Computed example of a mutant assay.
Amino acid sequence: MAEKVVGYPGVSNGKEVFLTGHAFRKNRLKNLRPGQSRLTNLRHMIRRFRLRPMKQVKVEVFLNGQKHHVKTNELGYFTCQVQQPYTVSGWYDYELCFEGKKGSNRAKGEYYVASDHETAVISDIDDTLLVSHSTKLLKKINLLAFRNAHTRKPIPLIKHWYNHISDLNDYEMPQDFFYVSNSEWNLYDFLKDFFQLNNIPKGVFFLRTLKKGLRDLARSGSAGSNHKEDTISWLFEFFPKKNFILVGDNGQKDLDIYHEFCTKYADRVKGVMIRKLSHVKKDHKMEMVENELKDLGIPLKFFH
């Protein structure tokens, strides 16, 4: 057994801090290196989906000189939302501790105090930044099972992602990035490493509920829940004075989801970016959304 507590990147709006994490009874994930064999990658991915969370355990959160007590849910997941005095924008540390059967388990995490810049980016990950083949089951499983952060590839023309974001923000790159993905927390360590290796802007991840079985590996990243809608709604409420650029792809339902937020928050969506996947044909519904966004005065940019 390898008991472990993990703290994910948290976020602050300058008044409150929101932190999340997991406590595990079994977590034997290790850092992978370039040149690892396909078998090693497969073994590591299997471990990701055989994590054993610790439910209903008390976790201590040390933040800004104060200690807060939280408890994990049935999937070993916890949240902590507390008041915070004004702090300059940037990344800050926090600490976690829980008492396991083998003694104290400690870990450090980071949280991001958002900038005063009025615009932030909400971006999907799979097939928007990371080649994932989310709509092609066999290719998706092959990538998940046999590749790692060193061998997975960003989208071919990722410079277009940067350029369009800058264009939509008056030719200035935003500082605040929130990555809302249908990938599960099982893949957090992989995504963190992938972003670092490919110099993708550091940000806060919002992933889906942890999975606990190998049968879930094939379904990893699939649409079918309200995770994206709920998270984006929360971000709009948590940052009531920010405008957002919404970024996704046309492989799943990103455009439909973003269309809803454009209708609801027309004055706060600065633009929408959609990556066109070559195997997905443009349909009548996409044309309709294009026209409606145009009527709302919200720019819609496509990239490859």
Rank of each mutant, 00 (worst) to 15 (best):
M286N: 08
Q175I: 10
A114I: 13
R25V: 13
E60V: 06
N198T: 03
Y111L: 07
Y162A: 13
M54V: 03
Y179N: 02
F261W: 09
R152T: 06
D124L: 04
P85D: 11
G271S: 11
A107R: 00
L157S: 12
I274Y: 00
V6H: 01
R147T: 14
H133I: 00
Y171Q: 15
T231I: 14
S37Y: 06
K281I: 10
K212A: 12
I155T: 02
K102P: 04
G21M: 07
V17S: 07
D127L: 00
P299N: 08
N148F: 01
S278E: 14
L144C: 05
G224T: 02
E110H: 13
Y171C: 11
T135D: 02
E172R: 15
H150M: 07
A107S: 07
M273Y: 02
K212W: 03
H68R: 05
Q66F: 09
D216A: 11
D126I: 00
P85W: 10
T135V: 05
G76I: 04
M1Y: 09
E290M: 13
Q66W: 06
L137V: 07
S222N: 13
H150C: 09
S104H: 12
L210W: 04
Q252Y: 00
W185A: 01
F303A: 03
R28N: 14
H68S: 08
I245H: 04
H284P: 05
A2Q: 15
N73L: 11
D267N: 12
G7K: 01
N226R: 14
G221Y: 00
G103L: 12
K264F: 07
Q81A: 13
E16A: 14
N27V: 10
T128G: 06
V61Y: 04
C80Q: 05
G297Q: 09
G65E: 09
S134R: 01
S166I: 10
V280S: 05
E290D: 14
F244M: 06
K136T: 02
L39M: 06
Y94C: 08
Y111T: 09
K211Q: 08
L235E: 05
R208A: 07
L144I: 11
V131P: 00
F78C: 04
I232Q: 00
Y265Q: 10
L168A: 03
L235S: 02
T231V: 08
F238S: 02
A120I: 11
V289I: 15
R28F: 11
V11A: 12
E237C: 05
H133L: 08
A266M: 12
S278H: 13
S220N: 13
M288C: 10
H304P: 10
H68V: 09
L210R: 02
S115V: 07
K270Q: 10
S37I: 12
F18H: 10
